[in-house]
Write a protein that binds this DNA or RNA. Structure first.
Lengths: 238, 238
DNA sequence: TAAATAGTGTCTATGAGACACTATCAG
DNA sequence: CTGATAGTGTCTCATAGACACTATTTA
């Protein structure tokens, strides 16, 4: 109205890609470039970057593109978490970023970063140990993505996207437990998951010196299932 | 990286302000200006507009400002819903908007619109009747805000922000029913609400030719309560 | 008294929690 | 047989759902 020319605001997308590796929930980080003029040189950050209005059909397409370019990966789950815009998050001035949460099985991973894998890093988010500060406000963004992930894991089937194609219920339960940071009751867990009718039975597979487990595979469906009650006795976050 | 100057993207905030009036859930609309060059002249739209990096500390401050400027109102609940950015939503080119959901009691309302109240309009969102198309992609934004509202009302105490300061449990239940579009069981509703320890008892008030109801008032707390199970037998949306 | 709305008593149904039990493999 | 992990039987408990019942007001 009163501003004759609307300049626009620097607009980016950042992606918190989680996986479960080595019995821990981990998030993918990329190293910031060392070039002159770039803020936070050589610091770790979430993968992401500015929207390219000529290449990105929409915000989610930008998130997919950034993930593919920086990691060579197409995640089976990608959802918008929130947007953060203010004058302080980038030393160059007012900017807005659009945070996405991505999930994938660790055995899909074959990371590449413009030929330099040393610029990629999995960081465990378990434990309260002080972590190295990330670039920009990415510590906050990571916290927001983690809160979203944990909140949804309390009452949805989201963790199936952290599993390989075929998996057992014990493996799925372990994944839930790692993300939630607490143990779950076996019988209740199995009853719920099977009642949700999310999984197809596939052939049993050989394992070690014990009864072989039934393997399952996600049915064709995009959305995750919402359970009528949250897991465990803990109230859902919020 | 390869673009020497990052131009930025036109960045706006839109607010879906809901209230319950006349036994219906209603959303506030503002009329687009008739000026030459403005897209969608004189069409109805959600209140909102471009971010002013000199005045808005962050996205939420921008939403509050737009709401105050266009309606004279400070809503007791304001939350971010999602962001939509693509090349098609504005005929002038790629843009991103940040959608907020606001709730307030209808008896707080004293709308003003730069001196012209005819540019404001409450639209009922009940019923499947085809509505007049809104400007930009605001039909989509309204749908997203409605979905968020209805989903959260299934398992939270959000509707307390649609109530006046003092209210009865019957009135609160009616508000839930209007938003959800279905009736709830009285006993279960009252038990849940009271067990959540959200409300303080205030003095009874005179009513009509019947037993006077107990009035309640929201305790001091910012966040809405999350119930362990959704209301009714219907599964939560999602 | 009737009419109207507020609020409760109580039984049933569902599904989670606990936990001990059985099942099936390698050796 | 043992050891290990997979999977089940069954009891208890919390809370929603149904619905009839009582309570309190004005007229």
């Amino acid at each position: 109205m009163d501003s004759p020319v609307t300049r626009g605001v620097p607009c980016s997308v950042d992606v918190a890609l989680f996986t479960v590796r080595d019995e821990a929930l981990q998030v993918l980080l990329v190293r910031r470039p060392a070039e002159d003029g770039e803020p936070f040189p050589e610091r770790w950050s979430l993968p992401g970057g500015n929207i390219d209005v000529d290449r990105d059909a929409d915000l989610e397409a930008c998130a997919s593109r950034k993930l593919l370019e920086e990691t060579g990966v197409v995640a089976p789950h990608l959802e918008q978490v929130a947007s953060v815009g203010n004058a302080l998050r980038d030393p160059r001035g007012w900017s807005a970023t659009h945070l996405y949460l991505a999930l994938m099985a660790s055995d899909y991973l074959e990371l590449r970063s413009g030929g330099n894998a040393a610029d990629l890093h999995w960081m465990s988010v378990q434990g309260e140990a002080p972590r190295e500060a990330l670039a920009f406000d990415h510590d906050l963004l990571l916290e927001m993505a983690l809160n979203r992930l944990r909140a949804k894991v309390e009452y949805t089937s989201l963790p199936v996207f952290l599993m390989p194609v075929d998996f057992t219920l014990s493996q799925l339960q372990r994944t839930y437990e790692i993300v939630l940071g607490r143990e779950l009751e076996k019988k209740a867990f199995r009853t719920r998951i099977l009642a949700a009718d999310l999984l197809d039975v596939v052939a049993r597979k050989k394992t070690g010196p014990n009864r072989p487990a039934q393997y399952y595979r996600l049915k064709r469906r995009r959305e995750s299932h919402i359970f009528a009650r949250p897991f465990g006795s803990a109230p859902p976050a919020g």
